[in-house]
């Protein structure tokens, strides 16, 4: 579904990603883990067209997208839930969700998706007419994910959805991700919480200083000595 081949990205002259390659198959739950500053968010920003690689290629459903504009990429079926939630504070929850569906012209379909989101995240239904700024951290994250899902993406990219959340809320958000995956949406997630996430995913990649240093099934990575030493302190 998604094939990233040898991409390198720089911010001005500072290299952030170097020769990064990985792939995501349809229906998979894939995670890229790594410490702060490893370049995880940049990978997602590059796929969604917010930054462009100076080298390498990105294919989505066998079409090159490395030079495409963000709105073209969303229209192709990739939704990006950015780091730090980034919801629209001055808009109501309902308006936030509807912005997510702006590529859809069929209003009946939009209404149905909205109902699905309200079922997945009941708190959003309760508070649909409240402004985004009134939500707590966990609710904001639920809104950000729901907003990303409103476009009915084929691939949902989540940037550290558990960042800044309490362990209980973090667990809730990750449970929601599992549910989304069960409904058939492919997920690519970047995370710092290595243990929790690697238990769930089909495939994991470890990013260190802009390079993929290891890949494998989640359980394999968790069992690896390198990972245990570097990330789990074991």
């Amino acid at each position: 579904m998604l094939k990233v081949k040898g991409i390198s990205v720089r911010y001005d002259i500072i290299p952030v990603l170097e020769d990064v390659s990985f792939s995501v198959q349809e229906g998979q739950f894939v995670a890229i883990v790594g410490s702060n500053g490893a370049g995880k968010s940049t990978i997602l920003r590059t796929i969604s067209g917010l930054v462009h690689p100076f080298q390498g290629s990105i294919d989505f459903l066998d079409e090159p997208i490395q030079a495409a504009k963000p709105y073209e990429i969303v229209a192709k079926g990739i939704s990006h839930v950015p780091e730090g939630r980034r919801i629209f504070d001055k808009m109501t929850i309902r308006e936030n969700l509807l912005i997510g569906a702006h590529t859809k012209d069929n209003q009946a379909e939009v209404r149905n998706t909205l109902q699905e989101m309200f079922e997945l995240f009941p708190i959003l239904k309760e508070r649909q007419n409240k402004k985004g700024e009134t939500l707590s951290g966990g609710e904001r994250q639920q809104l950000a994910i729901a907003r990303g899902l409103m476009a009915k993406p084929k691939l949902l990219m989540l940037d550290e959805p558990s960042l800044g959340l309490s362990p209980i809320l973090s667990k809730k958000v990750i449970q929601a991700c599992e549910e989304i995956r069960r409904s058939g949406t492919t997920i690519l997630m970047v995370e710092q919480k290595v243990t929790e996430i690697l238990k769930l995913v089909d495939q994991g990649y470890v990013l260190q200083r802009g390079k993929i240093i290891r890949e494998g099934k989640g359980s394999e990575l968790l069992a690896s000595d390198t990972i245990r030493k570097a990330y789990l302190g074991l």
Partner: peptide, 13 residues
Amino acid sequence: KQRPEAAQAMGVN
């Protein structure tokens, strides 16, 4: 106006 990059990520041109 509020969050241009988030709007872009949502596919707003």
